[in-house]
Design a protein around this nucleic acid. Sequence first.
DNA 1: GTCTATAGGCTGATAGAC
DNA 2: GTCTATCAGCCTATAGAC
Lengths: 217, 217
Amino acid sequence: MAVSADSAGQVKRNAPGRVRQRNRAKILQAAEHVFAERGYDGATTAAIADRAGLPKANVHYYFGTKSALYRAVIDSIIELWLEAFGDISEDSDPAETLGHYIRAKLAHSRERPLASRIFANEIIRGAPILSDYLKTDLRDWVTDKSRVLRQWANAGKMDPVDPAHLFFMIWSTTQTYADFDVQMRAVLGRQRLTDEDFETAAATITDVILKGCGIAR
Amino acid sequence: MAVSADSAGQVKRNAPGRVRQRNRAKILQAAEHVFAERGYDGATTAAIADRAGLPKANVHYYFGTKSALYRAVIDSIIELWLEAFGDISEDSDPAETLGHYIRAKLAHSRERPLASRIFANEIIRGAPILSDYLKTDLRDWVTDKSRVLRQWANAGKMDPVDPAHLFFMIWSTTQTYADFDVQMRAVLGRQRLTDEDFETAAATITDVILKGCGIAR
DNA sequence: GTCTATAGGCTGATAGAC
DNA sequence: GTCTATCAGCCTATAGAC
């Protein structure tokens, strides 16, 4: 079906690999939905194929096994995670830096709730895939940034709050808007969380945490 | 096999219903473990029966279906949830009341992590079972307690922080110690979270949130 | 009340025609 | 490269002997 590249090796339309790339992307996107909604065991390759609009056999053709597909989805999520971590350095202003970090994490919860839920499911399951990442990359990141927070505290820019537990607070308060979305909608009586809800959330979390850490603004 | 009650109706050993009650309890406990570790779809009745030390057929004999067993587990969890909510009333002292509430929620995360994880799984799945509870009991609780927080704010006892979002902060920061236990152990480099870790967590969350809400102590 | 044996359905995965 | 047809295994649930 695909039209090959011409004699010069240049790519025309439907070049080999184009369909492949598009189908892989379709499957990955569908898989993200289904894994987020049903968890690893609850997700079926049939449901993923249906959502992608492809026959089930193609899922196995492109990714081999369900487990490999899950890994591919997890990998794409981890990339996003690292981006969201952003820069926290000694010279930057605590209020601005932490405020920006909190808002970035919250925006991520809003824009990529599926990624957040898959991550949450993976951790609750005991992180069979992500265990290494948590013990290396994430741990190193926290160690590194903790140093910065301690320097801020020494310089009198903030209270001496335990850095690791402070990060746990920031992560949990922001991720809960993706993972526990249903609960918040029920409590707030919304069909969907609105712009205003997210603004109130951002303001509440930022105000409480910055003030709670003794960071002047 | 069971020895019946004697002629006076008094219960001797192995009275009818004793075995039933004990086996039901064994199955419920096993189910809590397996549902927490694997999620609803990942849990199998065989795994639950194995952990309970009973043949698989007994699970169905006592609870009928897997779904009914899951509901029974969820019901027992919700009872615990409501207990943990405790009393927050207008006359009580904000610092003491909220501090106590935060510590109670954190203690619950430590003592009943399985219940917390099952609850988290249920919410992430879209709360098929708990939806009604969230929209009624939980919503009413938040509405009720929000009134108290607003009164505290009007009386100058705390900042006018949005009550619902403040509760979301308290829930997420405390529950994360159960749900994301693996992540914290990886970051802190622990095999298990220690007494000291939980004390640091309690102090950090309480200090930041109370100070962040402008509650004097 | 208990438990073995088994039915019936769904799942991940693949063979093989196109 | 694509997709239909199909398999082997596991899952929930139950029938029926004890």
